[in-house]
């Protein structure tokens, strides 16, 4: 078995954990969806087909975020249960392990958001479906970055509760300050301009925007949208990879994360 095959095998095994806790993910997403519906009802008039078209891409991206951050929870457990240390005794280089985790984290995000997209396909025109499929690799890169950040928080959390604090902080930073659920125009009514700019260039906002325009809106998938998404996702993926690498290096030096 080549080293590449080994890392794919590790990624596949790690990813399989994702499906073994599927009900946890279902609960997380249903909580988010119910939050959104309540919010929609409070802002009366939002619950209509337009809001549905606005909301569904947001839910898809939220699913991607939740699934990718679940990687952090799995890594927290894997670190404490010693599975990461076990992986470190396998004939795979550290970079290979990092790649395996990146692939696994990205797959987790993409599978969940992909499932939500499939459900939403009933309301998407054929061209939109193609655009959505074309967007998946970019969403994958975004998911790897979020998963990497979550893994980093997992590594520095001594107890599980602390990990959830970090995860919530990540959610506040990336989900709340975004245009996932509210348009920039709404945010600008309540928050200062710099926050609006951050929200607009937030990678999750760009992903939700790309889905809204290209998948649900029927517009052609523009290179500008894709390159913007890539520009913000790639550094995040790089940070994620660096986070994984730091975790493994720390274990090698200190014997624990």
């Amino acid at each position: 078995m080549s080293e590449f095959s080994r890392l794919v095998h590790i990624a596949r095994t790690d990813f399989s954990y994702f499906f073994r806790t599927k009900w946890l993910m279902a609960i997380l997403i249903s909580l988010n969806v119910s939050d959104m519906l309540v919010t929609g009802l409070v802002y009366k008039g939002l619950v209509g087909f337009d809001y549905f078209r606005f909301l569904v891409p947001g839910i898809v991206v939220m699913g991607l975020f939740s699934a990718a951050t679940d990687t952090g929870r799995r890594i927290w457990l894997a670190l404490r249960e010693g599975v990461v240390q076990y992986y470190m005794t396998l004939p795979v280089r550290t970079s290979g392990l990092v790649a395996a985790y990146i692939i696994s984290g990205g797959l987790g995000g993409i599978v969940y958001s992909g499932l939500l997209l499939i459900i939403a396909f009933v309301a998407i025109p054929p061209q939109g479906i193609l655009n959505a499929i074309l967007l998946l690799p970019f969403l994958f890169i975004l998911a790897t970055g979020i998963a990497g950040l979550a893994a980093f928080f997992a590594s520095i959390s001594r107890v599980g509760e602390i990990y959830w604090v970090y995860a919530q902080a990540l959610q506040v930073s990336l989900v709340t300050i975004s245009t996932i659920f509210y348009p920039a125009s709404t945010i600008s009514q309540y928050l200062p301009a710099p926050i609006v700019t951050i929200a607009e260039y937030n990678p999750l906002s760009l992903a939700a925007g790309a889905l809204r325009d290209s998948a649900f809106g029927g517009s052609a998938l523009s290179t500008g949208v894709v390159s913007n998404l890539l520009m913000v996702s790639l550094p995040l993926a790089g940070i994620g990879a660096l986070a994984y690498w730091i975790i493994l290096r720390t274990i090698r030096v200190r014997g624990k994360p």
């Binding site: 954990y17 599975v83 240390q85 076990y86 005794t89 396998l90 004939p91 795979v92 280089r93």
Partner: peptide
């Protein structure tokens, strides 16, 4: 990496995938 190709360790604390069966852990 080459060292890891020729050696194997049984840890003091058992390390396994919590939601896998013993045979699938051994297969892996």
């Amino acid at each position: 990496t080459k060292v890891r190709e020729v050696m194997g360790i049984a840890f003091q604390e058992a390390r396994g995938f919590w939601r896998h069966k013993p045979s699938s852990i051994l297969k892996f």
